[in-house]
């Protein structure tokens, strides 16, 4: 790993027509870390991920990935380095679960080639890691929202990329499957030195899994740094406008946030 690895954003702005979405972002994301992106709805988190994948081009500033502007990469090359689990996962056609996970191998398979043994092995491993092997022959358009979301996560894992981007990848999942996915992501960061950048709404989940947090507000970075230093009641009050208490929780073995819900 050299210093040029990872992402570097310099003075990045983006707007949808006349509506600004991101303004003057300066950030550098190092490899081998688990990053969490938190912030209120509509603060530009998804746009931020799209800039990292090259799906959107910054209006001003530059996004550099591993020493080269993201825009200079060929899509196929980028797809072998960065995988994205998007927010929307609707599929209207009756592909089987296995076929969809195999689509994650697309950037690794030649245009007219068939999937090799390695491709099938990665597909099996990804489905096993997410625990969806037992319904690999079902049609994705007949699955529940949560099941579909797990299929999409398995597809991103099968892509075998050093960088994994999650856009609220567990929004439809119960606590067990949420933990299964984040435990697997955490393991990939720890054991294989991969980089995870995850947009997460649940602040306690972000506190539990992320090394570093980027807290966004109104298209700007409100705070960023190690999770322990970022998540403080003052910041949560300022960004989300709610009262909270942050304390070490012995059962979780991590700092957790309590809210005063209603009184």
């Amino acid at each position: 790993m050299n210093a040029a690895d990872g992402f570097a954003l310099a003075g990045v702005s983006f707007a949808y027509g006349a509506i600004p979405a991101l303004a003057g972002l300066n950030l550098s994301l190092k490899p081998g870390r688990f990053y969490g992106v938190v912030g209120p709805n509509g603060c530009g988190k998804t746009t931020f991920l799209d800039l990292l994948t090259g799906g959107k081009k910054p209006a001003q500033g530059s996004v550099t990935f591993m020493g080269q502007p993201v825009a200079d990469y060929r899509r196929r090359d980028l797809a072998r380095l960065i995988a994205l689990v998007p927010q929307d996962f609707a599929i209207d056609f009756a592909f089987t679960v296995q076929e969809v996970v195999l689509m994650g191998r697309h950037p690794h398979i030649g245009r007219f080639a068939s999937p090799a043994a390695e491709d099938w092995r990665q597909v099996e491993a990804a489905m096993a890691a997410i625990g969806i092997s037992h319904f690999q022959d079902r049609y994705v358009n007949e699955l529940s929202g949560g099941e579909k979301q797990r299929v999409v996560v398995a597809r991103a894992l099968a892509q075998q990329t050093p960088y994994l981007l999650f856009d609220e990848a567990t929004s439809s999942l119960d606590v067990r499957y949420t933990m299964q996915i984040f435990n697997e992501a955490r393991r990939l960061v720890r054991d294989e030195g991969r980089t995870v950048i995850a947009v997460i709404h649940n602040l306690n989940l972000a506190a539990a899994y992320c090394d570093e947090l980027i807290c966004m507000q109104g298209g700007k970075v409100a705070a960023c740094g190690p999770s322990d230093t970022v998540l403080e009641p003052e910041l949560i009050k300022k960004v989300f406008g709610v009262e909270s208490r942050v304390a070490f929780d012995e059962f979780s073995n991590i700092r957790q946030i309590s809210f005063r819900y209603w009184s």
Binding site: D77, A79, I82, L165
Partner: peptide, 17 residues
Amino acid sequence: LNILSLGSRSADTLGVE
């Protein structure tokens, strides 16, 4: 074309122009 049925955001990150 198969991969386009996942939506263009997914297709783009899977290496499809």
